[in-house]
Design a protein around this nucleic acid. Structure first.
Length: 897
RNA sequence: GGGCGCUUAGCUCAGUUGGUUAGAGCGCAGCCUUCACACGGCUGAGGUCGUGGGUUCGAGUCCCUCAGCGCCCACCA
């Protein structure tokens, strides 16, 4: 017999039945190493690239950042994904479950810099024989970009091995032959090719504009990488003299950044603000610097804030950019890319001052100071000149930071590459609606982000370890860079590094020479590459046949904190390149929080790597805990749950040992028939009502667990399976234990054994996605092949034939989950146990008499289970009395009582 | 300031479309030993379901108010 597969494929339930071999003392320790190797050598989790598209289940695995360390939160969310992968694999899908390593980007640069004692100088030529200093010196050694990138590769390769070990131990059913890295050749090629395609379609553009800038990392950052942090600050009230009219007339503003006074280009108030309306069109003079600036009106000015009139500087915050752009204000920038005040040409056009000596003097001593130092000094100067009104008023306010940075962002003007996102807002919102989110409310996060977008996506970073922009620029005869004359490589040359490679038609010695060329110095934002993961793993522009089979993918699993970055960026790229969603479903995991409900993270010092937990409790136990966490919900780290998981795994071993070992007449032989069976026992083998009840109840669990898993509710599926299993052990096993020992010629014994083995087979497969090790171990005791390639249980196909309905022909379909005989027997058994416990007697104590008073149909059910009940309860022959009547009662009289 | 989620036993959480005495595991208490399992088994005690209203024959479940916690977003002078 074979089980109908999803979509009609057929696969036998197991290979040839082997002789049952049950260990004397089964245990859970050491299973990870043994089965890890077995799965690897058997290729159990290999993706079948020949599978037709409707048989593929493709997962866009999140590539963890390898320069960091794995966190117990990763263990949880990757377990969620693995459960899904294993479920669909058992359902007959060819599962594409690759692993990626995110080694591209700033975290790796920092680690390499510290580890090898080198720094990247992109101006240097490549040195093929370079070896890093064996001893880290005080000075960092400057190396070329290609050399630096080589060192990044060397270090990340080590990290990747360590990560792989953790994932293998956890039991992820990844196809390790399909591993990629975000800095590898395939990723670089895909990133550059996709970039050139966008350039050709005018979906990406280069633009010189005010940009949020991290002064420590010396790079621009994008809107998605910002975070607000509450910082102490102070309102400084500053006097501006009104030009013309009464010499004593003045305007007072409040600012938290008096340091930007020399960069002030206007004062702005709300157009309806009666206090300032008379001043619109007039000018004021900045204190200390004597620069004449206009008083202007703009609706963004908030009459409630400060004095209701604000100083516009180039540039203090993003509102300044809006005012500067919309009111066509001049530019006077003072903060340099290193976060220090830079020299400015006082007196020159744009820097006219009424008090040139004052400006030169006041500003002169600020040049070269950091923003923070200069602020202190300028406050002193203002105080001395009498332009500071009152004392600064301390406040706490949100300040924009780069999420990885330590100093507030500044805004500087720079040349950057942008992907057009704003003009596609509507389409991107529609894609978000189309995607199936798990849980559904996570769609709000995406929508809020897309609706709130206020700038195009800046994808250029002024860093080194990333994918270079595949662009050179021609130099004119004066040696000036002609940004309008781009030199692009043919796609066949990709990946290229313009800092060392030479554009077609040029010679290497023309680099940087008049009439020659220069390479674009920047690299892509890490999200510009990772947004292509569905394309990279699907073989886009590399393996068209594979791509046609797996794209669009089925599942993007990830955490909720990177919806605005990774998920959003991926939707953007897929929409621009292919006009399609990259996957049908997104499963969003929550975080792991410590028992005090605080988010666990490196910065708070309570980060935890998964390995110690895996070693302490075992992989199945850690997975059990992880699978208990629902998607989207934060889950507390709970070693208690891991212990429960370990106990469950051990219980599975022991119960299986009983079913497979002791249930056969000679105490060691196999049940004559394989469990769910190519050579099934006659369908009529299961004759006892209580056995059929067990199968009906199990069928209910199968049905519900299957739909729970198909709907990404893994915790529900586990809970159902586990609940059934404990009742199977505590009640059913006890009830039929005695009967199962019986003579093989006794049909009642055969019925029990057949049911036990069948139920075990189904339960092992239900547990397999959650507890891959212990289920594989037990499966190997009597089945050929891996449980992970066995078909997912199917109640109608596997269980129904044993319920008599098929044999009877035309009998009604079973009502899954209904088990009145088993329920009644279990309840009476519980009453017997309670009586024994109350009298502090052993569970083996004999029962002299048991009287049940109940309704007729109920008594009928008990009668159907009478002999099992007598055995399990230790009831003396003839001791059971069933009487019609009410109210219902169970009276137990113990022997010797 | 806007949005989303959460608030059920000491702890961690289930409670599906509103329907009889609100469930599980852990922990706790008591008891039982070894014929699958002491890495065990049995039994038990624990809850006015955050607050205040409303709809309904009936609300943990639907609506409104408020409070607390968490997360996301925001133009932060």
């Amino acid at each position: 017999m074979s089980i109908p597969r999803e979509g009609g494929a057929q696969r036998p339930i197991a290979g040839a039945t082997r002789r049952v071999r049950v260990p004397e003392k089964p245990g859970v320790d050491g299973l990870e190493a043994r089965w890890g190797e077995a799965w690897e050598s058997a290729g159990t989790y290999r993706f079948d690239p020949g599978a037709p598209p409707d048989k593929v289940f493709a997962i866009d695995t999140p590539p963890p950042t390898v320069s960091g360390s794995l966190h117990i939160g990763h263990a949880m969310s990757y377990t969620h994904t693995d459960v899904v992968a294993r479920f669909w694999r058992m359902r007959g899908r060819a599962v594409l479950y690759p692993m990626g390593w995110d080694d591209n980007g700033l975290p790796t640069e920092r680690r390499v810099q510290n580890y090898f004692g080198v720094r990247c100088d992109p101006g240097l030529p490549y040195d093929p024989g370079f070896e890093p200093p064996s001893q880290r010196g005080r000075e960092l050694v400057a190396v070329s970009r290609p050399n630096f990138v080589e060192l990044c590769h060397r270090l990340t390769a080590e990290d990747e091995r360590a990560f792989e070990h953790v994932w293998r131990t956890l039991g992820l059913s990844v196809d390790w032959s399909r591993t990629y890295t975000t800095i590898g050749d395939r990723s670089r090629r895909a990133s550059q090719l996709a970039f050139l395609r966008m350039l050709a379609r005018d979906e990406v553009y280069q633009h010189e504009a005010p940009t949020l800038w991290d002064v420590d990392f010396h790079t621009a950052v994008s809107q998605a990488e910002l975070e607000d942090r509450e910082r102490p600050g102070a309102y400084h009230r500053i006097r501006f003299a009104l030009v013309g009219g009464d010499a004593s007339a003045e305007v007072q503003i409040e600012t938290t950044r008096p340091v930007l006074l020399p960069a002030c280009v206007a004062l702005v108030a709300h157009p309806e603000d009666g206090r300032y309306r008379p001043l619109f069109g007039r000018t004021v003079r900045t204190p200390l610097f004597g620069v004449e600036v206009p008083v202007v009106a703009h609706a963004l000015a908030d009459p409630e804030k400060g004095t209701g009139i604000a100083m516009v500087c180039t540039f203090g915050d993003t509102t300044d950019i809006v005012w500067w752009r919309e009111l066509h204000l001049p530019t006077r920038t003072v903060v340099g890319r290193d976060g220090r005040l830079e020299p400015v040409p006082w007196g020159a056009p744009g820097w006219e001052s009424d008090d040139l000596d004052g400006a030169l003097g006041a500003y002169g001593e600020l040049v070269g100071r950091t923003v923070r130092q200069a602020q202190e000094r300028i406050v002193e100067l203002l105080s001395r000149s009498g332009d500071l009104v009152g004392e600064p008023r301390a406040i706490t306010h949100p300040v924009k930071f780069y999420e990885k940075g330590e100093r507030p962002l500044e805004i500087v003007s720079s040349r950057q590459w942008f992907v057009r996102t704003l003009q596609h807002r509507q389409r991107l919102l529609e894609r978000g609606e189309e995607l199936h989110w798990h849980p559904g409310y996570m769609a709000h996060r995406y929508r809020a982000w897309v609706e709130g977008l206020n700038s195009d996506w800046n994808i250029s970073r002024q860093r080194f370890f990333g994918v270079p922009f595949p662009v050179w620029y021609a130099l004119d005869d004066d040696g000036a860079v002609r940004y309008d004359r781009r030199l692009l490589p043919q796609p066949g040359r990709l990946p290229v590094d313009p800092s060392t490679d030479v554009p077609d038609g040029y010679a290497p010695d023309q680099r940087g020479r008049p009439g020659g060329f220069v390479g674009d110095p920047d690299v892509m934002d890490t999200w510009a590459t990772s947004s292509l993961t569905p394309l990279i793993v699907s073989g886009w522009e590399e393996d068209p046949e594979l791509f046609a089979r797996v794209f669009p993918m089925d599942l993007r699993p990830q955490a909720h904190d990177i919806i605005r970055t990774w998920l959003f960026a991926t939707v953007v790229r897929s929409e621009l390149e292919l006009g399609a969603l990259p996957w049908s479903d997104a499963a969003i995991s929550g975080f792991v929080v410590d028992p005090d409900r605080k988010k666990m993270s490196k910065s708070t010092g309570n980060a935890t790597t998964p390995l110690p937990y895996l070693e302490r409790h075992g992989a199945d136990a850690v997975r059990y805990w992880a699978a208990g966490g629902k998607l989207g919900t934060d889950t507390a780290l709970d070693e208690g749950q891991m212990k429960v998981g370990r106990r469950l795994a051990i219980k599975i071993l022991n119960a299986s040992k009983f079913v497979l070992g002791r249930s056969s007449p000679d105490g060691g032989g196999p049940p004559e028939t394989p469990p769910a069976a190519e050579v099934p026992p006659p369908a009529a083998a299961v004759i006892e009502p209580i056995d059929r009840d067990l199968l009906r109840r199990l069928g209910g669990v199968v049905t519900e667990a299957t739909s729970a898993l198909a709907g990404y509710d893994h915790s529900r599926a586990l809970e159902l399976t586990e609940g059934f299993f404990w009742s199977f052990c505590d009640d059913y096993l006890e009830l039929v234990k005695n009967r199962s020992y019986g003579d093989p010629a006794d049909p009642r014994a055969v019925s029990a054994r057949t049911t036990l083995v069948l139920a075990l087979s189904v339960q092992l497969r239900l547990f397999a996605p959650f507890l891959p090790y212990v289920t594989e171990e037990v499966w190997s005791w009597w089945q050929a092949g891996s449980v992970h390639l066995a078909p997912w249980p199917d109640a109608a196909a596997e269980l129904e034939p044993f319920l008599g309905s098929v044999a009877a022909g035309g009998a009604p379909a079973p009502v899954w989950g209904e088990s009145p005989v088993l329920d009644a027997a279990t309840e009476v058994l519980a009453a017997v146990r309670k009586e024994k416990t109350t009298h502090k007697r052993s569970m083996r104590a004999r029962v002299a008499s048991l009287t049940v008073v109940d309704l007729p149909d109920r008594l009928e059910h008990l009668r159907a289970a009478e002999r099992d009940l007598l055995d399990a309860g230790g009831i003396e022959p003839g001791g059971l009395a069933l009487r019609e009547g009410g109210p219902a009662s169970v009276t137990v009289v113990l022997d010797g009582a």
